[in-house]
Design a protein around this nucleic acid. Structure first.
Lengths: 227, 227
DNA sequence: CGGGGACGTTTTGTATACAATAACCAGCGC
DNA sequence: GCGCTGGTTATTGTATACAAAACGTCCCCG
């Protein structure tokens, strides 16, 4: 994407992640144009991308709001991600080259090193983790699958920035990755799928603990929220 | 979406489906603006949607082309659709009300009637079929799942318009739908999932026969195609 | 005191002109 | 003849002005 709309995208995204805007708050294109220093045209382009990534939401009358996910929304995303990424792991098991498997091993060494620092380097961990999962998805050789997963992974990452990670959680992640590499080396798609499944489902429960208990039946209307 | 960009979207989509443009052909925003009778601004909006739906593709240098799916692309879409729609069927089995199940039954009566005409009314069949699947997806109550599926269903539909349906294919579809309704009535998610799986996988094979044999290893570069 | 409608304000949508970039082509040196 | 380089055209990207639509409010009427 071109320069201005790309800058707008990054700037708006950073602005949202910075926490300086509340979930559910209304934004206007003019505001965003001022913040980003470009005109409304590229802002609108950027906003469309962010809507697609579910970071922004439009009301029925086209007004723009900061997305605000319910616990059920988040669980839905995790369920979908699990379904898709298990599939990716299974395909990857058949397709990864020896070199690619070695690269995954290296990424996980990096990740493990980040975990075993004291205190653990969460930023370094997240980056290695992202790269690890991305490599698997790439190896699945399914461009649309990759595109869908990118959107799903994108969203929860935002909330995660606020979350505190325990070292034991991080260590478990590293062990899961080790086992994934073992499954890949054995070319065992079923094994890879199973490990990926428990890896992600556990991640959801860890995540959910910090968000709060399940809303049993609250009907929650995203769009009608006021600023 | 607003009036002009909505019109542009429909017009461009119709233009693509009409078959008057070849797959891989280059389009320009100006051309599309002329065809649709609106300015480039709403055209760009419409084009973004069509890119998202994979009907249009952009080259690395932002030039716009009519999408041209390989057999592998199509299989990928069917695989993903199967994965997601099986999930939807399973969820729907737990959530559909008696009334909704009755509505599905009615839709399938309509579909069956279209099939048993002579000659079968394919347009009527396709519309009932679309409504049937959509109702299931809606009942799954997973908005992002619905969004993803919409994109996947969208794309192959285009090619389908060119395809000829045999009456026995259509009858088998109707029977599958009957069995799905039975699975829903029994609230058996596993059954529903299984029926949906075979329904869609068979659809893929039927479809694939008309497209031609699998390309075993051709590395096929969508974006570098010339007009 | 409450509801409804007209009006001003805010916000989004569209057209158009201009800027930047990519493709094309022709001419030149080798 | 081949490949490069310059300029030329085609195409996309951005800014801005204006149009349309939605929102809020205030006043009037019941």
């Amino acid at each position: 994407m071109s320069r201005a709309s790309e800058r707008a995208y990054s700037a708006i995204r950073a602005h949202l992640l910075s926490g300086s805007v509340a979930a559910g708050e209304q934004l206007t294109e003019d505001q965003l144009a001022q913040i980003t220093g470009v005109s409304r045209t590229p802002v609108r382009e950027a906003v469309r991308r962010l809507e697609d990534e579910l970071l922004l939401v439009r009301s029925d009358t086209k007004r723009l709001f900061v997305a605000d996910w319910s616990r059920d929304d988040i669980e839905e995303m995790f369920v979908l991600r699990q379904m898709l990424e298990c599939h990716a792991a299974e395909r990857a098991a058949k397709r990864l080259s020896r070199e690619q498997i070695a690269a995954l091993e290296a990424l996980n060494s990096e990740l493990t090193a980040a975990v075993e620092q004291s205190p653990p380097d969460v930023v370094r961990f997240l980056e290695a983790n992202r790269a690890f999962h991305e490599a698997i998805i790439d190896a699945a050789h399914s461009p649309r699958l990759g595109q869908m997963l990118a959107k799903l992974v994108e969203a929860p990452v935002v909330l995660r920035t606020a979350r505190t990670y325990s070292q034991s959680d991080l260590r478990q992640s590293a062990r899961d990755h080790d086992e994934l590499v073992a499954a890949f080396a054995a070319r065992d798609g079923d094994w890879a799928r199973a490990v990926m499944g428990s890896h992600l489902r556990r991640a959801f429960h860890t995540f959910a603990k910090t968000v709060g208990p399940r809303a049993d039946d609250a009907a929650n209307d995203q769009d009608s929220r006021e600023a």
